[in-house]
Amino acid sequence: MLEVAGLNAWYGEAQALHEVSVRVGEGEVVTLVGRNGAGKTTLVRCLIGLHRQVSGTVSFLGSDVTRTPAHRRARAGMGWVQDDRGIYASLSVEENLLLPPRVSDRAWTLKQVYEAFPLLADRRKAPGTTLSGGEQQMLAIARVLRTGARLLLMDEPSEGLAPVVVARIGAIIREIKATGVGVLLIEQNVKFAATVADRHYLLSQGHIVETLDNSDFQRREGELLKHLGI
Protein backbone atom coordinates (compact mmCIF):
# COMPACT_ATOMS: atom_id res chain seq x y z
CA MET A 1 0.00 0.00 0.00
CA LEU A 2 2.96 2.32 0.58
CA GLU A 3 5.73 2.50 -2.00
CA VAL A 4 8.59 4.93 -1.48
CA ALA A 5 11.10 5.09 -4.33
CA GLY A 6 14.34 7.06 -4.46
CA LEU A 7 13.26 9.59 -1.86
CA ASN A 8 15.68 12.44 -1.11
CA ALA A 9 14.96 15.06 1.53
CA TRP A 10 16.73 18.28 2.41
CA TYR A 11 16.79 20.84 5.18
CA GLY A 12 17.99 23.84 3.22
CA GLU A 13 21.34 22.75 1.75
CA ALA A 14 21.76 19.73 4.01
CA GLN A 15 20.55 16.45 2.59
CA ALA A 16 18.87 14.31 5.26
CA LEU A 17 17.67 11.36 3.19
CA HIS A 18 19.42 9.73 0.21
CA GLU A 19 17.57 7.58 -2.31
CA VAL A 20 15.41 5.92 0.31
CA SER A 21 13.15 3.13 -0.93
CA VAL A 22 10.69 1.53 1.45
CA ARG A 23 7.62 -0.64 0.96
CA VAL A 24 4.82 -1.55 3.33
CA GLY A 25 2.13 -4.03 2.28
CA GLU A 26 -1.36 -4.63 3.59
CA GLY A 27 -1.29 -6.23 7.04
CA GLU A 28 2.46 -5.88 7.17
CA VAL A 29 4.45 -4.42 10.04
CA VAL A 30 7.74 -2.93 8.95
CA THR A 31 10.19 -1.22 11.24
CA LEU A 32 12.69 1.47 10.59
CA VAL A 33 15.64 1.18 12.93
CA GLY A 34 18.59 3.51 13.19
CA ARG A 35 20.48 5.78 15.52
CA ASN A 36 19.29 9.18 16.59
CA GLY A 37 19.78 11.55 13.69
CA ALA A 38 19.72 8.77 11.07
CA GLY A 39 16.68 10.39 9.43
CA LYS A 40 13.86 8.18 10.75
CA THR A 41 11.57 10.98 11.89
CA THR A 42 12.39 13.01 8.77
CA LEU A 43 11.27 10.07 6.63
CA VAL A 44 7.96 9.80 8.46
CA ARG A 45 7.39 13.56 8.18
CA CYS A 46 8.01 13.28 4.42
CA LEU A 47 5.50 10.43 4.20
CA ILE A 48 2.72 12.26 6.01
CA GLY A 49 3.46 15.41 4.01
CA LEU A 50 4.80 17.79 6.65
CA HIS A 51 8.30 17.91 5.18
CA ARG A 52 8.00 19.11 1.60
CA GLN A 53 11.59 19.64 0.48
CA VAL A 54 11.85 16.28 -1.26
CA SER A 55 12.46 14.53 -4.56
CA GLY A 56 11.57 10.99 -5.56
CA THR A 57 8.15 9.44 -5.26
CA VAL A 58 5.82 8.41 -2.48
CA SER A 59 2.81 6.42 -3.59
CA PHE A 60 -0.02 5.36 -1.36
CA LEU A 61 -2.78 2.92 -2.32
CA GLY A 62 -1.70 3.17 -5.93
CA SER A 63 -1.64 6.95 -6.33
CA ASP A 64 1.33 9.28 -6.31
CA VAL A 65 1.03 11.51 -3.22
CA THR A 66 4.50 13.09 -3.34
CA ARG A 67 3.00 16.58 -3.82
CA THR A 68 -0.24 15.99 -1.91
CA PRO A 69 -0.80 18.21 1.16
CA ALA A 70 -0.73 16.52 4.58
CA HIS A 71 -4.45 16.80 5.32
CA ARG A 72 -5.34 15.01 2.07
CA ARG A 73 -2.88 12.21 2.81
CA ALA A 74 -4.53 11.75 6.19
CA ARG A 75 -7.94 11.67 4.52
CA ALA A 76 -6.64 9.08 2.06
CA GLY A 77 -5.89 6.82 5.03
CA MET A 78 -2.48 7.61 6.51
CA GLY A 79 -2.50 7.83 10.29
CA TRP A 80 0.38 9.47 12.10
CA VAL A 81 1.34 8.70 15.70
CA GLN A 82 3.83 11.45 16.43
CA ASP A 83 7.04 10.83 18.40
CA ASP A 84 5.99 13.14 21.25
CA ARG A 85 2.48 11.58 21.03
CA GLY A 86 0.96 14.85 19.88
CA ILE A 87 -1.82 15.08 22.40
CA TYR A 88 -3.64 18.42 22.55
CA ALA A 89 -3.65 20.12 25.94
CA SER A 90 -6.48 22.43 24.89
CA LEU A 91 -8.68 19.49 23.87
CA SER A 92 -10.27 16.95 26.16
CA VAL A 93 -9.47 13.26 25.76
CA GLU A 94 -12.69 12.79 23.82
CA GLU A 95 -12.07 15.83 21.63
CA ASN A 96 -8.59 14.48 20.86
CA LEU A 97 -10.31 11.32 19.63
CA LEU A 98 -12.96 13.18 17.62
CA LEU A 99 -10.70 15.78 15.99
CA PRO A 100 -9.53 13.80 12.95
CA PRO A 101 -12.25 13.04 10.39
CA ARG A 102 -13.25 9.45 9.61
CA VAL A 103 -11.47 8.32 6.48
CA SER A 104 -12.82 4.86 5.71
CA ASP A 105 -15.62 2.48 6.59
CA ARG A 106 -13.30 0.59 8.88
CA ALA A 107 -13.35 3.58 11.25
CA TRP A 108 -13.98 2.71 14.89
CA THR A 109 -16.89 4.16 16.78
CA LEU A 110 -16.24 6.00 20.01
CA LYS A 111 -17.88 3.07 21.81
CA GLN A 112 -15.44 0.59 20.28
CA VAL A 113 -12.52 2.83 21.24
CA TYR A 114 -13.71 3.02 24.84
CA GLU A 115 -14.25 -0.74 25.00
CA ALA A 116 -10.72 -1.35 23.80
CA PHE A 117 -9.23 1.41 25.98
CA PRO A 118 -11.39 1.66 29.11
CA LEU A 119 -8.95 4.03 30.80
CA LEU A 120 -9.71 6.62 28.11
CA ALA A 121 -13.43 6.33 28.82
CA ASP A 122 -12.84 7.13 32.48
CA ARG A 123 -10.90 10.27 31.60
CA ARG A 124 -12.89 11.40 28.56
CA LYS A 125 -13.60 14.91 29.86
CA ALA A 126 -10.06 15.56 31.17
CA PRO A 127 -7.60 17.71 29.18
CA GLY A 128 -5.56 15.38 26.95
CA THR A 129 -2.19 16.12 28.48
CA THR A 130 -3.31 15.31 32.03
CA LEU A 131 -2.99 11.63 31.08
CA SER A 132 0.18 9.71 31.94
CA GLY A 133 2.75 9.04 29.21
CA GLY A 134 1.46 5.54 28.57
CA GLU A 135 -2.15 6.71 28.49
CA GLN A 136 -1.25 9.49 26.07
CA GLN A 137 0.38 6.91 23.80
CA MET A 138 -2.81 4.81 23.91
CA LEU A 139 -4.82 7.94 23.10
CA ALA A 140 -2.56 8.76 20.14
CA ILE A 141 -2.99 5.23 18.77
CA ALA A 142 -6.73 5.14 19.47
CA ARG A 143 -7.11 8.49 17.72
CA VAL A 144 -5.78 7.20 14.39
CA LEU A 145 -7.62 3.89 14.73
CA ARG A 146 -10.89 5.76 15.16
CA THR A 147 -10.39 7.40 11.76
CA GLY A 148 -10.13 4.02 10.06
CA ALA A 149 -6.61 4.72 8.75
CA ARG A 150 -5.22 2.07 6.37
CA LEU A 151 -1.58 2.70 7.19
CA LEU A 152 -0.15 3.74 10.56
CA LEU A 153 3.10 5.66 10.76
CA MET A 154 4.20 5.18 14.36
CA ASP A 155 7.17 7.12 15.62
CA GLU A 156 8.74 5.37 18.63
CA PRO A 157 5.54 4.37 20.41
CA SER A 158 7.48 2.42 23.06
CA GLU A 159 9.84 5.24 24.02
CA GLY A 160 10.00 5.99 27.73
CA LEU A 161 7.19 3.61 28.68
CA ALA A 162 7.06 0.85 31.30
CA PRO A 163 7.52 -2.74 29.99
CA VAL A 164 3.89 -3.63 30.72
CA VAL A 165 2.69 -0.69 28.59
CA VAL A 166 5.13 -1.61 25.82
CA ALA A 167 3.74 -5.15 25.85
CA ARG A 168 0.20 -3.74 25.54
CA ILE A 169 1.27 -1.62 22.56
CA GLY A 170 2.83 -4.72 20.98
CA ALA A 171 -0.47 -6.55 21.39
CA ILE A 172 -2.37 -3.65 19.81
CA ILE A 173 0.01 -3.60 16.84
CA ARG A 174 -0.55 -7.32 16.27
CA GLU A 175 -4.32 -6.81 16.43
CA ILE A 176 -4.15 -3.95 13.94
CA LYS A 177 -2.00 -6.05 11.62
CA ALA A 178 -4.57 -8.86 11.71
CA THR A 179 -7.19 -6.48 10.31
CA GLY A 180 -5.06 -5.74 7.24
CA VAL A 181 -3.74 -2.36 8.30
CA GLY A 182 -0.11 -1.67 7.37
CA VAL A 183 2.24 -0.30 10.00
CA LEU A 184 5.52 1.53 9.56
CA LEU A 185 7.12 1.55 12.96
CA ILE A 186 10.10 3.63 13.97
CA GLU A 187 11.82 1.85 16.78
CA GLN A 188 15.08 1.97 18.72
CA ASN A 189 14.00 -0.87 20.97
CA VAL A 190 15.30 -3.78 18.90
CA LYS A 191 13.85 -6.45 21.17
CA PHE A 192 10.39 -4.91 20.93
CA ALA A 193 10.73 -4.49 17.16
CA ALA A 194 11.49 -8.18 16.76
CA THR A 195 8.28 -9.17 18.55
CA VAL A 196 5.94 -7.32 16.19
CA ALA A 197 7.55 -6.81 12.79
CA ASP A 198 7.78 -8.80 9.56
CA ARG A 199 10.62 -6.84 8.04
CA HIS A 200 13.15 -4.25 9.12
CA TYR A 201 14.94 -1.44 7.37
CA LEU A 202 18.18 -0.22 8.84
CA LEU A 203 18.63 3.51 8.28
CA SER A 204 22.04 5.09 8.70
CA GLN A 205 22.95 8.70 7.88
CA GLY A 206 19.96 9.02 5.60
CA HIS A 207 20.64 5.81 3.66
CA ILE A 208 18.82 2.49 3.89
CA VAL A 209 21.85 0.26 4.50
CA GLU A 210 20.09 -3.06 5.02
CA THR A 211 16.73 -4.74 4.65
CA LEU A 212 16.23 -7.74 6.90
CA ASP A 213 13.43 -10.17 7.46
CA ASN A 214 12.55 -10.84 11.07
CA SER A 215 14.56 -14.08 11.45
CA ASP A 216 17.78 -12.43 10.16
CA PHE A 217 17.03 -9.52 12.38
CA GLN A 218 16.79 -11.69 15.48
CA ARG A 219 19.91 -13.69 14.56
CA ARG A 220 21.94 -10.49 14.20
CA GLU A 221 20.48 -8.70 17.19
CA GLY A 222 23.83 -8.31 18.95
CA GLU A 223 25.46 -6.75 15.91
CA LEU A 224 22.50 -4.39 15.39
CA LEU A 225 22.53 -3.27 18.99
CA LYS A 226 26.20 -2.41 18.57
CA HIS A 227 25.44 -0.46 15.42
CA LEU A 228 22.70 1.46 17.20
CA GLY A 229 25.09 2.22 20.03
CA ILE A 230 22.73 0.95 22.70
Partner: peptide
Protein backbone atom coordinates in the same frame (compact mmCIF):
# COMPACT_ATOMS: atom_id res chain seq x y z
CA UNK B 1 -18.52 23.22 18.63
CA UNK B 2 -16.44 21.37 16.09
CA UNK B 3 -15.29 24.68 14.59
CA UNK B 4 -14.02 25.73 18.01
CA UNK B 5 -12.24 22.42 18.42
CA UNK B 6 -10.51 22.86 15.07
CA UNK B 7 -9.52 26.44 15.96
CA UNK B 8 -8.06 25.26 19.28
CA UNK B 9 -6.19 22.39 17.62
CA UNK B 10 -4.84 24.62 14.84
CA UNK B 11 -3.72 27.13 17.44
CA UNK B 12 -1.90 24.61 19.60
CA UNK B 13 -0.27 22.32 17.01
CA UNK B 14 -1.03 23.36 13.43
CA UNK B 15 1.21 20.75 11.77
CA UNK B 16 -0.33 17.91 13.74
CA UNK B 17 -3.83 19.14 12.89
CA UNK B 18 -2.89 18.97 9.20
CA UNK B 19 -1.43 15.50 9.60
CA UNK B 20 -4.69 14.41 11.23
CA UNK B 21 -6.66 15.46 8.18
CA UNK B 22 -7.72 19.01 9.13
CA UNK B 23 -7.49 21.53 6.31
CA UNK B 24 -6.09 24.29 8.50
Amino acid sequence: TRVGMIVRASTEKPDLARALGINV
